[in-house]
Write a protein that binds this DNA or RNA. Sequence first.
DNA 1: GTCGGGCCTCTGGG
DNA 2: ACCCAGAGGCCCG
Length: 413
Amino acid sequence: MGALNLQEWNKLPISLAELCINTTLRCGQSFRWRKSEEGVWSMALHGRIIRLYQDPDNLYYRSTFPTTEIARPISSTTNASSLQDDTLPLLQHYLNLGPNLTDLYAHWSANDANFKRKAPKFTGIRILKQDAWEALVGFICSSNNNIIRISQMVDKLCRTYGPLLGRIDDHDYYDFPKPADLANSGVEQKLRELGFGYRAKYIYKTACMIAEKDDDWLDGLRNPESPAFGKDPVPGGAFVDEGREGYRLAHEELLALQGVGPKVADCVCLMGLGWGEAVPVDTHVWQIAQRDYKFGKSKHTSVTKATYDAVANKFRSLWGQEAGWAQSVLFTANLKAFSERLVAKTEVKEEIAIKEDPDAVKIEEDESAEAETIIKTDKVLVKGIKREADDKDQMLVETKHNVIRKSKRAKKA
DNA sequence: GTCGGGCCTCTGGG
DNA sequence: ACCCAGAGGCCCG
């Protein structure tokens, strides 16, 4: 942490088991957070620049408003501090700090031995309550893509079409552009020049469709139990394996947008509209379903609609109301960027001992009574995570390769 | 309803 | 060197 001075920061006591921003902010749900060399996460959010830092006992946070906002006349009934004071409730909302995460993990583990085995190294993951429009655009970008490139694309989008909020430590912060900002002719061409590929047309068309509708159309699809920041929750109905009526309606409405298929619609439902039962079934989750939950006997390699629904329903029946949240934990555990944790001794420190005797690294027992898999362990050289500028050294780690056995029950045959 | 083929771009691994 | 599969898929015929 070095020269980082936390004197001027606000402090919120919270454990790493209840929130781990280092995992939550880079596991592929939000594509806009940036991490400094000091370990400070920062992003433009709700018209201000938010900075976050976490140690084992506290979350530290601070807001920086644009100069015009700070210079705004203060009414006689409003003191200076109340201008910034909504940062805490804003963060509590955005980081979704309401639920007790330890209890949730226990609940998901109770019916699921696989979750119980995988989750302990991926604690503190929360589903962010992101702006629905931002989530929509981000996940339209995600098709046939990887998290690093998606983040670069979203950054270009904000830099080109979003309002500049300020500059901190030689870094400019732009807020996310509005639908109307992307609904102009020439946007598709510009996005193609910026490297969006075939997604340029999807974003332009979807922006046009949203801009045509009422301003509150997208938020009208929200889970009433999880309203937008500043509004009061209303009961949203009883849970069912297929998902509640409101969720299915929201999903269907989103499918009408360009570049939005079932997976992207579920991402928006889960991370932008507050529908906890939305389970996005992507290539990773499909792999997980085949490897650990006995899916895959069907002949098609790609996920058909029927298979998609079957996988999502299976996970909803297994994990319940917040199935999408549980899915995200397993998704993160399956990401290559986090694969070092599968064999790392400790999860708190970023650095893995580079010169450590590889033979001293413990091999985890990962056999599952349920999963029909064979585990092979290999020693390989992998590069450090690209986005961490201070982590370029090559690390000697071990990875496991799972080989799917296709036979239905005859393990020994 | 289902199935291929094509799609922008970048990267790690054969 | 070179190619190709894969990356949090979707659209079209």
